[in-house]
Structure formats: structure tokens, C-alpha cells
Amino acid sequence: MEKLHHPKAALTQYSHALNLAPNSALARFKKARVLMSLKLYPDALVELEVLKNLAPEEANVFFLLGKCFKGLGRRADSVRTFTTALNLDAKVRLEEDDGVCAC
């Protein structure tokens, strides 16, 4: 649904997936990404905080969290989490065009 540009339908599917498997890091990451595309930054932040605990060593999580903080206008938190993403993966490239970290 997300690839078909139906973010609300994708959000419903990711929410359902998380009801079935609450510890699914992939479903939570994709749900947070859809929430951010809908500019629902506070909801995305909740998902990303849980995800940060599920995958504390994943640079992509911190990159998306930095983008979320940026969307919320929390510049200092944004810079801090982007720095964490870079420290976790020195090869990380921050790409603004698709909102995904390319490693």
C-alpha cells in the first residue's frame, strides 16, 4: 500500500501487523515512516522511541528519529540523533530525497 501511494491504508496494515507481533522492528519502522509522511510527528515519535529500545544499534532508526525531531522543530535533539546515527555507522549517507538512510 505504501508503494502504491496509499499511506493511510499502509498505516492500517502496519498497525494490524503490530497488533499481531508487537516486537516487530520492521513493522514499527515502516509505521513510523508512514506516520512521518503524513506529518503525524508526535505519533511517529512514540513509535520511534519504542523502536529505539528494540534496535539500539540500528543507524536507520536514529536517522529517522532525527528527521522526526526536525519535523517537530526540536533542532538540538535532531542534531544529536543524526550524530548518533553517524557514530553507529560511519558509512551512513543522509539522503533528504527519500527519507531513508542508504548504507
Rank of each mutant, 00 (worst) to 15 (best):
K52H: 13
L64F: 05
A76M: 11
D77E: 15
C68H: 06
L51W: 11
K52N: 12
L45A: 11
V34K: 03
F82I: 04
E49K: 14
P42V: 12
T84A: 07
T81R: 08
G73Y: 00
F63A: 04
D43S: 12
R33W: 04
V46L: 09
N60D: 12
D43G: 09
T83L: 13
G71H: 05
E57S: 10
E49I: 02
C68S: 03
T84V: 09
G66V: 06
V46C: 06
S78P: 11
S37W: 01
K39F: 00
V46Q: 13
L40N: 07
D77T: 08
V46S: 13
K52I: 02
F69H: 15
L38D: 03
E47H: 15
K91T: 13
A59N: 02
K39T: 01
K52Y: 09
G66A: 10
E49D: 14
N60A: 15
N60T: 11
T81Q: 12
T83E: 13
E47A: 15
T83S: 14
D77I: 06
V46K: 15
M36Y: 01
L51F: 10
L51D: 01
D77F: 05
L40S: 10
D77R: 09
L86A: 13
R75I: 13
L86Y: 09
P56F: 07
A90K: 11
C68Y: 00
G71N: 07
F62P: 07
K52L: 11
A55T: 10
L35Q: 05
K67P: 02
A44D: 06
A44V: 03
L38W: 00
E58L: 10
E57T: 14
R33C: 05
L65I: 08
K70L: 11
S37Q: 06
L40V: 03
T84I: 11
S37N: 08
N53P: 00
A85I: 00
R33Q: 14
A90S: 08
L72E: 05
Y41I: 06
V92T: 14
V61C: 08
M36K: 01
A85R: 12
F82T: 07
G73E: 00
D89E: 10
V34P: 07
C68E: 02
G66S: 14
R74T: 04
D89H: 07
K67L: 10
R75M: 07
L72C: 00
E58K: 13
E47M: 12
R80I: 04
Y41A: 00
T84C: 08
V46G: 04
G73A: 02
L40A: 05
P56D: 10
V61I: 11
F62L: 04
K91N: 14
L35R: 02
A90F: 06
E57K: 13
P42D: 13
R93H: 08
L35N: 01
A90I: 12
D89F: 03
S78M: 10
L86G: 14
V79Y: 14
K39M: 01
K52R: 15
T84E: 14
V34A: 07
S37L: 06
D43A: 09
R33E: 14
A76P: 04
A76C: 02
F63G: 03
S78L: 05
L86I: 01
E47D: 15
K39S: 04
V46H: 07
L88R: 04
N87T: 05
A76E: 14
F69C: 03
N87R: 11
T83R: 14
S37F: 00
N87V: 02
L88I: 01
V92W: 00
F63M: 06
C68R: 11
V34E: 05
T81I: 12
F62D: 01
L48I: 08
K91C: 07
